[in-house]
Design a protein around this nucleic acid. Sequence first.
DNA 1: GCCCAGGAGCCCG
DNA 2: CGGGCTCATGGG
Length: 222
Amino acid sequence: MNYTQELVEIYDLLFDRYGPQHWWPGETRDEIIIGAILTQNTNWKNVEKAIENLKIKNLLTLVNITKTDMPEITQCIRPSGYYNQKALRLQEIAQYFMGSDVQSFSTRTTAEMRTELLALKGIGPETADSILLYAFEKPVFVIDTYTKRIFARSGIFPGNISYDEAQNFFMQNLQENAELFNEFHALLVRHAKECCQKNPHCIKCVLLKKCKFNNYDLNQEQ
DNA sequence: GCCCAGGAGCCCG
DNA sequence: CGGGCTCATGGG
């Protein structure tokens, strides 16, 4: 079986189990961009609290973030952790989008947009790709620790794969389709949270038959 | 109390 | 290029 068939089969197994995930969990483009920054190495539940605080103060838009004093932003996003860093970077990033205005930003090629995002402090590869895929619907596959974990355990990825190598693997073996990339990444996050945690619950895993890392016997004792 | 969570930047060899 | 350190809260 080739990698394309392998990936499609994994996708189908996840989709059959979990159904459509309706990502990104946010309403507007600005909210997606803000959420992508806030969720860095942070539990999404904590991000939800920060987003709610911002919403109450009408700070869930990039333009309003540029107009607000740092301490107020910091206080709102406190639950999301790293709040000093994130507040500073959030404002810089908001200023960037306001300065270049989102209209002209979207007219560039995806590669150009990605390069510009990566040049901003606080936006690394995963955040850049999340913004491209979920805020601008560009066909870019997002890699995160969950994706690496699931595919490393399955035996498809080596343990030390780089971000770019992992991304190339998906993009070279799947149709270039933003809807597919959107749903696939969301399903991987769902699966990692619910089943393929650091201590995996292999007993309920729909990918069990395709996975080298089999913790099934261990789980049965519980 | 300890571990972990949808990373990124910086510094160092 | 890759590893180690820092940033920080809240839930299990």
